[in-house]
Amino acid sequence: MSFRTADGANYQGRDASGHERFSVSIPYDEHGYFGRECPACQQIFRMNGEDYDALPDDLELICPYCGHRDEHSEFMTTEQRDRVMRVAQDAAMQLVTKALDKSFGSMARSTRNNRFVTVTCRSKPFYPQPLPGIDEERLVRERTCVECGVRYAVFGEHRFCPVSGALGASVVAEDALSAERIKLAALDDIPAEQRAVLREQGVFDRIAVDTLGRVVGIVEAFASSEFRRRVPTADAILKGRGNVFQRLDDTADLFAAQLDVNPRVAPDLDWEVLRRLWAARHAHVHADGRVDEKYLRAVPTTSLKVGQRIVVSSRDALSAIDLAAALCEVLGDRTI
């Protein structure tokens, strides 16, 4: 049997199991990308079509957001699935028509007894409608995995390459710090009237503090990953030391002792400013932002007194981002 198919679909014959087989094209966008949708978290990402076509058929795809692994076919987007289903529906319609033609073609066209009704069936040629198009989220920027070279695009925070898996610590840190910069820059686009309301409510102050906390967390994750990657006995050295990489001086001591990397003396890295910002973050997390004895030990040159509140400005937040990027570059072996 042959099937009529719309442009973008082709009948490929019957397989060994007796199933009819069709191929359905998934069009690329103007950049050569097409969408994938994770069956676990339902988030969309895009992959370069040329790179994707070169992948082995049996390679499992990885969701860049949640890390779910599955067969390629499980990552079809809703619009792609609708396109495939249209071909299946067209084929089913033609199979039904063929079956009806065969059945009614063998029936008598008339009877001698008028108690019976003569049934006739005249089918018309089937002309499939054009397949549904694909209009998915547009490419923002092209990313290239440093491990496998596959090009892809994401629309949110991600931790995995769709092919090679978990991203390196430097890539994660770079993305995270970039996101913090963009977040702060976006505040400038808020209309003046709304800015006044937000400022009065302390929203900008809160964002600056939250950004500082995020930056400390980014450095902590990066330093931990780098230390464990490069020091074979890391687990034994770190045992019982808690969140050591959250503490700036302890981090410096570890890298100096185990990897001969001393960030305290690195050029263009103001260690005293880093210590002040890290101490401010600790005070806001553990002391409602008020100066305590621990803050005074970390920042002995401060003019603030115990009980005073530490103000973290947007300038402080930006400085923290820049210094964190420089610190990660010193601690790692790749540029952030």
Rank of each mutant, 00 (worst) to 15 (best):
R181K: 11
V154D: 08
Q194K: 13
G156D: 06
E220L: 03
V219P: 04
L131A: 09
L139A: 06
P191W: 00
P191V: 00
I134Q: 10
T144V: 15
R181C: 08
R143I: 15
A153D: 10
C145V: 04
R122S: 13
I218R: 01
V216R: 09
Y152D: 05
S178V: 03
A185S: 15
G149T: 07
I207G: 02
G217A: 01
P130D: 11
P128K: 11
Y127H: 14
E200L: 08
S164K: 00
I218T: 10
L198R: 13
R214E: 04
L184K: 05
A192R: 11
R159F: 02
K183E: 13
R141L: 12
T211L: 01
D189F: 15
I134M: 12
A166S: 07
A166W: 01
F126E: 11
L187P: 03
C121A: 15
V119W: 09
L167S: 02
L139E: 08
L212N: 04
A196V: 09
Q129V: 06
V140C: 06
R143V: 12
L187I: 04
D188G: 14
R143C: 12
D175T: 10
L167M: 07
G213Y: 09
Y127S: 15
E180T: 07
Q201V: 00
D189Q: 14
V209T: 04
R206G: 09
A153Y: 01
I218V: 14
V171Q: 09
A173E: 08
E137G: 05
E142S: 09
R138S: 15
A185G: 13
V219M: 05
V140N: 10
P162E: 07
R206C: 05
E137D: 08
Q194Y: 11
V163Q: 03
R141D: 13
V209P: 01
L177S: 12
A176I: 07
E200P: 01
L198I: 05
P125S: 15
Q201W: 05
D205C: 05
F222M: 01
E137Y: 04
H158L: 07
V150I: 14
V219F: 02
I190D: 09
Y127Q: 15
T211V: 10
K183W: 10
C148W: 00
V203F: 13
L187R: 06
V209Y: 02
C161I: 04
A196H: 09
A176E: 14
G168H: 03
R159Y: 02
L212C: 11
C148F: 02
V163H: 01
A221K: 02
V209W: 01
G202K: 08
Q129T: 10
V154I: 13
I218D: 03
L167T: 06
